Amino acid sequence: MELTLIEISLLGILVLCLLVQLSFTLFVHLKLGLVKVEDIPADATEPLSVIICARNEARNLEQFLPAILEQDYPEFEVIVVNDRSWDDTKDVLKVFTDKYTHLKVVTVAEGTRFFAGKKFAVTMGIKAAANEWLVFTDADCFPSSDKWLLGMQPPANAAQEIVLGYSPYLKKRGLLNALIRFETFFTAVNYLAFALKGMPYMGVGRNMAYRKSLFFKNKGFAAHMHIPSGDDDLFVNAHANRHNTSIRIHPETHIWSEPKTSFGDYLKQKKRHFGAGKFYKDTHKFILSTQIIVQFLFYMALIAACFIKALWFPALGVFIFSILVRCFVYPKLLKRLNYAGLVWWFPLLDILLFIFLVFNGILSIFVKKVQWK
C-alpha cells in the first residue's frame, strides 16, 4: 500500500518526535538512574545555617519545625523569617525559641517599605545567618531523617558552591495527588539529570543549599527582584554551572512536603513556577521548550495517525515502542526517588501530565497575576 505525502510526513513527524524523546530519556535522564548514590558523611566539616521563610505557617511550624531543629549535626542554627504573619506564627516561634537556643527568628513587619515577597524574606534570613553555608527549606516540609543536614553539608570540593537536593510530596488519596507527585518526579529527574550532565538550570527551595558569599557576590536577587517567584530556580539558573554544582539524592537527604489538595491551589502553584521559567537562560528555555513541544507533537501526530487506516498500525507500534523503552528507565527512577507506588500508573500518568502541562501553559497566557502567599 502506497502512502500519500501527507501520510509520510505525519509518520515522519511521529518517528522524529520519538527519537528526540528517547534522546532525553537515554542520554540525559538515564544518567540519574545509573549514578552512584553518595553515602552520607559520618562527620560534619563546618557549621551551617538553615533558612525557612514562613507566612501564616503556625500549624506547619508546630508540626514540622522540631524535625529540623533536632537534626544530628554538631553545629548549626535555624533561622525562621516570620514574613508578615497574622496567625499564631509569632506565638509558636516564641515557644520554640524558649526551648531551642539555636533557633533565631527574623520578623518582617507588615507595612515594611521594601519589596514585599518571599525574596525579601529570604534575603533577610541570609543577612541574619552567622555561617557561610546556607541550607534552605520551607515551613511545610520535614526531612526524611535526622541525617539530612549531614547529607546537605558543604561538599569536600571547595569550588562547589551549590548543592541541589530532592523534595518529594507526601502520598494522599486521589488522582490529583498522583498527578502532583508524578509531575514533581519528572521535574526532579530533569533538573537533577541535567545537573549531572553539567548543565544545572534550576533547584527547588524546599531542599537546596549554597554559599552565602555566592549570594552577595552576585547581589542576591537584584536581577530578578521584580519577579514574584524564582527565589530558588532563578538564582540557580543564573549562577550554577558544571563546576560549582552538585546534587544529593540519598534517601536520608530527601525533604518531604505537603502537597496541594485542590486543583485550584495546584494551578496557582504551577503558575508561579511557569512564570519564573520565562526568565531562564536562552539555552535552558530552548531545551525545556523542545521537550514540551516534541511531546505535544508526538501525541498530536499519534492521534491523527490513528484516524488514518494506513497509519494506525505503525503508529501504534511507535507508541508501544516508546512506552517500552521509557518503562525501562523511569520505573527505576521512580523507585530511586521514593515514588515506587506510581510505577504501575506510569503510562496513564504520562498522558495526564502532558494534558495538564498543555492546559497550564494556555492558562498562563491569560492569568498574569501571581504572588507568594
Rank of each mutant, 00 (worst) to 15 (best):
A222K: 13
Y166I: 03
A159V: 14
F27D: 06
L214G: 01
H224L: 03
Q21T: 07
M202H: 01
L19H: 06
Q291N: 10
F319K: 03
N190W: 05
A310Y: 05
L22Q: 04
L149W: 04
S213L: 11
P66V: 00
F185L: 13
T101M: 06
I40E: 02
L333M: 09
T89E: 07
A67S: 14
Y280T: 10
Y191W: 14
R206D: 02
K94M: 11
A139E: 00
K268R: 15
V358R: 05
G361F: 03
I255K: 02
I292H: 12
T137R: 11
A178N: 12
A58Y: 10
V105A: 08
K31S: 09
I365M: 08
A139K: 00
G117K: 09
K99F: 07
F136H: 05
G264V: 14
L164D: 06
G341T: 09
V163N: 02
K36Q: 14
T45Q: 13
W345N: 01
V163F: 03
A58C: 07
M300K: 03
F76L: 07
I51P: 04
F216H: 12
K31W: 04
G165K: 10
W256L: 13
P154E: 11
L234G: 00
T107G: 01
I351A: 11
N218I: 06
T4I: 08
A340I: 10
F182S: 01
A304M: 10
A130S: 14
Y299D: 05
F235P: 04
D83L: 09
Q371S: 15
L234Q: 05
P314R: 03
I292T: 12
Y210C: 14
M199D: 01
F346L: 05
V122E: 02
R113N: 12
A315M: 03
A129G: 06
D140W: 09
H239Y: 11
V28I: 14
A128S: 13
E2T: 14
L214P: 08
I365W: 01
Y210K: 10
E62R: 13
P155L: 03
K119S: 05
L192G: 03
I323D: 05
V358G: 00
I6D: 09
S49R: 08
S262V: 12
P41S: 10
L302D: 03
R211N: 01
W312F: 13
E46L: 11
A238T: 07
D72R: 15
P200T: 13
P347R: 10
G203V: 04
I365Y: 06
V15R: 10
V50G: 05
M199T: 03
E62G: 06
F216D: 11
K99H: 13
L176P: 08
Y166V: 05
F215L: 02
W312D: 01
G264K: 15
V15G: 01
F120Q: 10
G220I: 06
Q63P: 01
L337M: 11
S289Y: 07
A139T: 06
G264M: 10
D43R: 15
L11Y: 07
E183H: 04
F235D: 00
D91E: 15
I249N: 00
F120M: 13
K270H: 08
H102P: 06
S257V: 13
F221H: 06
L196M: 08
K171M: 07
I8P: 02
V163W: 03
V122C: 07
Y169T: 05
